[in-house]
Simulated scan of single mutants.
Amino acid sequence: MIKFLLKLFPSSVFAVQERVSEIPTRRSVNEETESLDHGSVSNIPFQVLSWSPRVSYLPNFATKQQCEAVISMAKHMLKPSLVALRKGETAETSQNVRTSTGVFIGADEDESGLLAAIEEKIALATRIPSDYYESFNILRYQLGQKYDSHYDAFHPAEYGPQKSQRLMTFILFLSTVEDGGETMFPFENGRNMNGSYDYEKCIGLKVKPQRGDAIFFYNLFPNGTIDKTSLHGSCPVIKGEKWVATKWIRDQTYD
């Protein structure tokens, strides 16, 4: 697995721009006409937001029409989102941690081919083939809904033995949120790691949801251990509605 992970951490795949603490709200590329480009990886705009954790931002990854089509596909199937339970936890004790609604949809379930096309572009951007992907988790956050800070990788001491781990998380923002709803990383560069962090607090590196944009970040180090700075959450929506399509990418092929 180590050799596989090392291949996924190239030093200069894309032109790296200056790190910013929050994504600007105005972009130069017209999202109405930008399409899913199936050409070379170099055609995908790329910006590094942080090296600890390793977070990258892809503007205009999908068009307005594509985002709306994914929302339309999912909106009639939504159910309350669940969380993986640690040893000793119950659904009752963790019910306020994640308050969104969502649905899992596999690319093979979508007859239109849109989800397969998005997966293909994710594979180009991340350099990891779709054999390693879980199904899309399409999520909606309404007023006040959020997801407290958490890890996407599962520590065996807390969750039991794991056949594989979530190496990477890819998030496509399907809507622009007027206020709130940021994806945030409170432990960026080792900040707030003194043991007193309130896991409901929305601090640190924040990425504002903009329709069509995407981010991806690594949950593991190249040696397969969990990156503690990959802790992340979804800030409460203050105004508007947040839709995302999340793709978890494993360190082994996944059924």
Rank of each mutant, 00 (worst) to 15 (best):
V48C: 15
S21I: 13
S52N: 15
G113E: 12
T93C: 13
K79P: 06
T90V: 08
A123I: 02
T126E: 02
P80F: 06
F46A: 11
R140S: 09
Q65N: 14
W51G: 11
P45L: 14
A91M: 14
R127H: 05
V55N: 12
D110F: 00
L143R: 13
A117Y: 04
L124N: 04
V103P: 06
Q66A: 07
G106C: 07
S112F: 12
H38T: 08
A91D: 09
P129M: 10
I23A: 05
Y133C: 04
A125D: 02
E134Q: 13
D110G: 02
H76F: 15
P80I: 14
E34K: 14
K75C: 15
A69P: 01
A62R: 02
T25C: 14
Y57M: 07
D110W: 00
G144I: 11
H76P: 03
L139E: 04
Q65L: 15
A91I: 05
T126F: 03
F136L: 10
E22M: 11
G106T: 12
S52Y: 06
I128P: 09
S21R: 12
F136Y: 12
A117L: 06
D110N: 00
S42K: 15
A116D: 03
V70Y: 00
T90N: 10
V41P: 04
T63V: 09
A116L: 12
M73K: 15
I23F: 09
L85G: 07
R140Y: 00
L114G: 01
I122L: 08
L58P: 03
